[in-house]
Design a protein around this nucleic acid. Structure first.
Length: 276
DNA sequence: CGGCAAACCTGCGAGC
DNA sequence: TGCTCGCAGGTTTGCC
């Protein structure tokens, strides 16, 4: 579910509520999500404070005051919601709950359990299997057309699949890849290695633009995603093509409208007229 | 190694 | 109304 804008929105909503507050409870309600939860979660967290909340790709990283890092990924259906007080009942599929001094409580719910929560030491972070191979952050100034073209240069795969590859660029998912390709005017089946110079530049501009607009809207709420406050995002209303099969794409009156195809087992939505 | 399908798991909407 | 099928913001595995 959550791609970069959703994860970043959750991080921004969470930060002011939890940074600097002492953790007083940490409970897992089952042994595992996609991978096992830390066995000693409570022991590792209670008494600690979160000193910094970062995001890398689609991971949220809570740096603790003892040098440990709590790593959280929301998978397809994970939610992190902050409550003023501990809820008096356990929500369906609420797998982890962390309580802070003063009553603020963060609940992790995830009915599909494709997400994960784990711990590592700060020193291991860069070399960690989740992070060692990740591509650049798309919103960094260092992410330019030249950089993207370089990373696509040897790829014999469709540009759609290449952009979903987190080792090419980190944080994009199915929605924002479809949207970025639309705004860049690039066909999803185009060979990745043919995206260079001017086309790569256009694509980078489109990626940054769509991510920034989605961030302003608090992300896209389709099924499961909510902000840390519980509010919905509303960028879904601004989709040009995603989940709009058969509709006319904005500013284009081609008869066929938005088409849906399947690439690497995922739906791709695009306009055959605007995207080449 | 590169590229793609399938698997992981649950829920919901469409269609019969 | 009630069932089955297909599909869902992700990542990893295993097969060619």
């Amino acid at each position: 579910m959550p791609e970069l804008p959703e994860v970043e929105t959750v991080r921004r909503g969470l930060g002011p509520r939890v940074i600097g507050r002492r953790i007083v409870t940490a409970d897992a309600h089952r042994p595992d999500l996609r991978i096992p939860l830390p066995e000693n979660l409570s022991k590792r967290l209670v008494g600690r404070r979160i000193v910094r909340l970062d995001r890398r790709a689609k991971y949220i990283l809570a740096h603790l005051d003892d040098g440990a890092v709590l790593i959280i990924h929301l998978g397809m259906s994970g939610r992190l919601v902050v409550h003023d007080r501990p809820p008096n009942s356990v929500a369906p599929h609420e797998h982890v709950r962390i309580g802070f001094q003063g009553g603020v409580t963060v609940s992790y719910t995830d009915h599909r359990r494709f997400g994960l929560i784990t711990l590592c030491d700060e020193a291991e972070l860069a070399g960690h299997r989740f992070f060692a191979r990740l591509g650049p952050e798309p919103l960094d100034d260092a992410f330019t057309g030249a950089v993207l073209a370089e990373r696509l240069a040897d790829k014999a795969t469709p540009i759609k699949a290449a952009l979903l590859d987190q080792t090419v660029v980190a944080g994009l998912g199915n929605i924002y890849v479809c949207e970025a390709l639309y705004h860049a005017g690039l066909g999803p089946r185009r060979l990745a290695r043919t995206v260079k110079s001017e086309r790569a530049e256009r694509l980078v501009v489109a990626i940054k633009d769509v991510l920034e607009r989605a961030l302003e809207a608090g992300g896209s709420s389709l099924r499961d995603y909510v902000q840390a406050s519980g509010e919905l995002g509303y960028f879904q209303n601004a989709f040009a093509v995603y989940d709009r099969e058969g509709e006319a794409c904005p500013g284009c009156d081609c008869g066929t409208g938005v088409r849906r195809i399947v690439q690497s087992n995922r739906s791709t939505f695009y306009c055959a007229k605007r995207q080449r």
